[in-house]
Amino acid sequence: MTVSRPTDVGTALTASRLNGWLLGACRVGVALLWIDNVSWKQPPDFGEGDPPRTLYRWTLQAVEHEVLAPYAWFVENVVVPNFALFGWLVLIVEASLGAFLLVGLATRAWAVVGMGQSIVISLSTLNAPHEWYWAYLLMFLVHLMLFATAAGRYGGLDGVLRPAWRRSDTALARLLERLS
């Protein structure tokens, strides 16, 4: 088995228009999953109450079906007592993941955020009853793939805007080029 050098990888990715469209479709598909998933993060209580519902119920799984002791401690002692704040944080992160992966803007940065959020979700629910560990592994890996392929450059705004960012001397343009 051989490993392609970066230039060969780039050639392979751009050699076929179909490859680009498939990468773009994959990115949009992942975005739609996040967009769908954010629908049950409902403010202002995010399911906090008796009985626990939605996001609050799933957050408690980190304590009731511990995956990693320090994370379970953090959830029990920091997240749960301040649940409204963390509920809004989850809503903003996941809504932004769907939003920015959809249009392919700063895609590599959001792919990293997606990997992080996949880990957080895994640490909360991996040991919950009836959960399938493949799902969480696949969540992480698909974001790793979006990062590695810079998927926003295929049918996304990163591909449209990078020439302009490259020609600009502003710090924001340089930052956006790095994040794409």
């Binding site: 990715l13 751009t14 591909g159 020439p163 020609r167």
Partner: peptide, 11 residues
């Protein structure tokens, strides 16, 4: 801005 004929390499 300048139109790019093909997407760039991720590298």
């Amino acid at each position: 801005a300048e139109p790019s004929a093909q997407p760039e390499s991720p590298s």
